[in-house]
């Protein structure tokens, strides 16, 4: 006996997944499946694309058209899929390192083009699969296997990065605030143009152990206490002091890339 959501949207023979106990990625994957269900999309019209990393294993478990590509290049492959088949709902799953380091160039240009892709960033602030190297989102001072004395880099805010590069929908929520996360993923799927949802995850195995953050529950509690909703932050700025702000950073309408491309074809047909 299984959850009907699992029966409908997952490859049950591939479950349970290999993610560690308490890894937030399963929570995000389940939120994506629920958001797809709520959006009423035809399974055969959804294509899920990923690169390399812990998060990028998700399409292996999800029962849609799926594409597991090379490190950082999920958005490049997804751009090709979308241009060839604009009727597909293309959802990209990428980790923070995959999306903002190895594939950082693809991220900014997909956002700049405003191509109708939905990107979900599974941000666990570390390279988990390869053993806990620090990533572009590891907080300054935090430790990784490649930063045993503390990271001296400044971290990226991936939501702001996507917004700055031209994404027309950019939102952030955490695996603790899962209702909000699912709502943003639904909005991103419904949005026409480049949309990105940064799902702040937890990595108890590497990030947690390296930085003595405690158990998965302790890390979830930290998310609960450290993130404040944008609406609250705007009304009561004193509540947002020293905290991260989550919410919809950008939600606007701009010309969409595949439509502009079709217009060129129509125009040249004469």
């Amino acid at each position: 006996m299984n959850n009907p959501l699992v029966e409908n949207y997952f490859r049950v023979d591939k479950l349970p997944h290999i993610w560690c106990p308490g890894c937030g990625h399963g929570i995000i994957m389940s939120a994506i499946a629920r958001a797809i269900e709520k959006s009423g999309l035809d399974k055969d019209k959804v294509c899920i694309v990923s690169g390399i990393g812990c998060s990028s294993r998700a399409p292996g478990y999800m029962d849609f058209n799926t594409l597991h590509t090379t490190h950082g290049r999920a958005l490049a492959f997804a751009t090709g899929v979308k241009l060839a088949n604009p009727e597909l709902e293309v959802i990209v799953i990428a980790g923070d390192g995959d999306l903002s380091a190895i594939g950082g160039n693809h991220l900014i240009h997909a956002a700049r083009r405003n191509i109708n892709l939905t990107t979900i960033c599974f941000n666990n602030n570390i390279y988990g699969m390869t053993g806990g190297q620090y990533s572009p989102t590891t907080a300054t001072g935090d430790k990784g296997t490649t930063a045993p004395y503390g990271n001296i880099d400044r971290p990226f805010d991936i939501t702001q990065l996507a917004a700055g590069a031209g994404a027309t929908y950019a939102a952030k929520a955490t695996v603790y605030h899962v209702n909000q996360l699912q709502k943003y993923i639904e909005a991103a799927i419904g949005h026409k143009g480049f949309s990105m949802v940064e799902a702040v995850s937890v990595c108890p195995t590497y990030y947690g152990r390296k930085n003595k953050k405690g158990s998965a529950v302790d890390m979830m509690n930290w998310l609960k206490d450290s993130f404040v909703d944008m609406k609250i932050a705007e009304k009561m700025p004193e509540k947002a002091v020293g905290k991260f702000v989550m919410g919809e950073y950008v939600n606007k309408v701009e010309p969409e890339y595949t439509e502009l491309y079709d217009q060129v074809i129509e125009r040249l047909k004469g």
């Binding site: 959850n3 959501l5 479950l15 308490g22 389940s30 695996v175």
Partner: peptide
Amino acid sequence: CEMRCPDFAIFLG
């Protein structure tokens, strides 16, 4: 419980 379970191990059905 279902919403926050990372492993699909608990659900309301």
